[in-house]
Structures are given as C-alpha cells and as structure tokens.
Design a protein around this nucleic acid. Structure first.
Lengths: 229, 229
DNA sequence: TAGATTGTTAATCGATTAACAATC
DNA sequence: TAGATTGTTAATCGATTAACAATC
C-alpha cells in the first residue's frame, strides 16, 4: 500500500543511510525487531518522522511489533544501492586523500574505490593504499573504462573548481567534495560539499551558546522518550 | 536599524562562515564591494536569502552599491568569533586525525588546535604534527588547563560514544564528530557529526537520479541569474 | 534622473510533528 | 481483551522566496 517510486528527499536519503547502519549493528547483536521510537533516537528525530521515512521504502512495519530488522535493512539497501557495486574514484592523494582512502576501505558492499588520481609525478604509477594512482590527465580514459560514477575530491581549495570541471567532463555523475570551496554546476551532476572548516567554525560558534535551535528539539524529544518509556 | 542579538539559526551560521571565506578571497583580489546576488551564487541560494542573513550581522549594505567587503567580513567575524582565539583538542591521532590536524593547521585566526589525545602508548608523549600528544586519561586535566572549548573527534565508531562522554565530563562545550556514529546528549554540549559514510552513500544514490530536490532549486536560481545579469 | 540594489514584511514552500483509525 | 505501535492525513513549524518602498 506504500507510495512507491515517489521522489525521495535528500534529508530522507540521509536518514535512511543512518538507519541502515544502525540496523546492521542491531543484526550483529542478534536483535530481530525494532520500533520507530528506537530508530528515532539514533537520528534525534521523532517516531513519526521515522515511520514517514520508512513508508517510502515499503512500510512493512507491524502494528505493536515494530519493524523486522533483516527485511527493513534489505529494503533500504534496495532503495539506496544499485544492483552492481558502484565504482568510485579519489582525486587528490595528499594526507587527507590517503586518510579518506583508509576510511572508505574495508568491507563495503555497495561501493569500491577503484582508482586514485594526482598530478604529482612522484605518486603517479604507484600503488597507494592498494589502489593504482593515475596521472590526472588519465581521468577521462579511466572513468570511462572503469565505469566510475562518483568521485571523492580531496584537492586543495584552489584546485577544486578545475577538478570539478574535469570530473564532469569525464562523465562522473556525483562528486563528494572535501575542498573548502562551494562549487555549483549547471549540469545534472550532484555535488555534495563537506565543508569541514565551516563545520568547525559552526561548532566553535555554538560552543558558547547554550541554547540553539536543534538542541531544544533534541531536548524535547529526549524528554518525551524518557517520560513515555 | 538591524534586529540585533536575535538568535541565529544553524543554517545562517553555516552560510555566514561560507560568505566570510569568500569575502576574504575577494579581498585578496582587491575587490572592495560585493552584491547580494554575487554571494548568493556562492551558496547556491537567492539574493533575498543573503540579504536576510546579512541583516542579522548588521545590514550595512548600501542601495545600488552593495556591501563593503572589509566591513562585512569584520562584522561576520565579530558575530562568529570570540575575542580570544579558541583552543581546540583533537581526539584520536590515527590517519584521519593526523590528516585533520594538517587540514586545520595553517593561519587560522579564530582557533588553534593546542593538544591531541590518543590511548596508544606509542603516540602519547610524542609531538605529532607540531602538537603534543597526551594520553586519553589526561583529558580532563588538559582541557581545564588550556581552556579547551571544542574537540574534534576522530576515533573509531566503537570508541565514539565513550569519548563523547569523557569530553563532556572534561568540560568541552562543542564536539565535531567524524566517527560514523550519531550521538545525542542531554547536556547543553553541541555535537556536530560529519557522517562521511552517509555523505558518500547519498552522493552515490543521487549519481543516478538526474533530478533531485536541491538541484532543481539550483537550476532555477542559476537561470534567474543568467537571464538577469 | 533612471536604474539597480538594499532592508524588511508578507507569502510560499517544504519538512516535521500531531493525531488517530486500523491492527497486531 | 487491553495496550502499544503502525501507516497516513491534517496541522504546524521553520526556512526560503517574492515583493516592494526606500535609497543610492
């Protein structure tokens, strides 16, 4: 009965990713069912929000018994992932790039970093953290050959804009940008900037403001949970 | 005439940080004035949104002439920053932690990473990237001594929850969390999680959806700009 | 002056939450 | 059965955008 193939908002996609990771942890612990209010705590949201999100992936909850963890996890994966593992490229193999390579390695079911690129001749041709490093001028060729859909950008701010142009030209469809530079495009390529400098400045700003919008929300939710359960 | 000391939303704080960084780039280029529609492009927003944000920092724009860059930059700094440089700690000196240390180093005017912590005995006592690495059990002592307000958390997911507890106990007021684990608190401490795994999964999801909510917004704005200017 | 941009209010939009019948 | 939770609609909330008088 669930509304199907409806367009899913960015916020919902984000939360689904977080739910899924938590569901996998619960699986490891041997749990089989979970309630909307339990998932709500994970994302500091409300049970209603969780149920609304889960409606979009099938809404196979059971009154009074909650959601079946295995089923829900699979359904989220069906929605978020693709039948084939997605190939990802890393652009920029400096300190941050190598750290990200390590971070995103390991047993990932849905994606794989299959190539890295840099314009430092010392790095090109070498194997870095298990991946071949190519010269930046090989981008278009390798992206095509390896069917790379998504790129992680870890270059200095000054180089980000041109790197984005090259990536779009090479046929990449999404970019996760770690350079502290917001870049827009008129193509259909999805660009997600993780602005770590902004995030730290924001954290420092709120370090001395005891009340802030989101917090009061957290508080309310938390108190509701505590009083209810 | 601007509304002063109004509570500023998280979103506005984020954009102010981005505006300021762009203003500093413009300063370097020798520009002296900027229009709301120019700043709008940077954050993929509308001129109205920029003006609304800037109202909250003083609204010293000048009809037809835009905003004076030096003044605006100073006003944003007055709002976002504190009179004293803020001391920041880094928790977890693995690959990611060291990369972040490098990323956040350099000429930062408003904050300084003054200490790092790890529970690996090999790292403790050493100087890593120019900062003394302390054992995790020194946290409370050093946070107090150095008046550390904010911490960057770069530990494995399994260690994140306890680390947050320890940080809050030690008196830290804001945490920038890079562990792929969402943590809530009933204290007034601000926790900002940068969930890189979620971000990549989201990027991959949207890599194959040609239209997504934010993009259509970008598109509209972009077209408005192009037709207007 | 004419044209463009600002500050600010009102209107709109989208996301979140409340509410509740259905159901286990 | 009684109590709790779900799916879903309606109400609310907050953020964004449109509109426009004031002004350079």
């Amino acid at each position: 009965m669930a509304a199907l193939k409806q367009k899913i908002s960015e916020k919902t996609v984000e939360r689904l990713s977080v739910y899924r990771r938590h569901l996998k942890e619960l699986q490891k612990k041997g749990k089989t069912r979970v309630y909307s209010h339990e998932l709500a705590q994970i994302v500091a949201g409300t049970p209603a929000q969780v149920r609304r999100d889960l409606m979009q992936v099938g809404g196979n909850g059971c009154s009074s018994k909650g959601y079946e963890i295995n089923l829900l996890s699979d359904e989220i994966s069906e929605l978020l992932d693709y039948p084939e593992k997605q190939n990802v490229a890393l652009i920029g193999v400096g300190n941050l790039g190598r750290a990200l390579l390590g971070f995103f390695s390991g047993s990932r079911e849905n994606f794989d970093i299959v190539a890295t690129f840099d314009n430092d001749p010392d790095k090109c041709g070498r194997i870095i953290c298990g991946r071949r490093c190519y010269n930046a001028d090989q981008l278009k060729k390798i992206v095509g050959e390896k069917k790379i859909s998504t790129a992680i950008l870890a270059v200095p701010a000054e180089a980000a804009e041109n790197a984005v142009k090259d990536l779009i030209d090479a046929g990449v469809k999404a970019i996760l940008n770690f350079a502290p530079k917001h870049i827009t495009t008129n193509s259909n390529v999805f660009i997600q900037t993780i602005d770590m400098t902004m995030a730290l400045e924001k954290a420092i700003y709120f370090s001395h403001k005891n009340t802030y919008a989101k917090e009061s929300q957290h508080e309310r939710n938390r108190k509701n949970y505590q009083s209810t359960f």
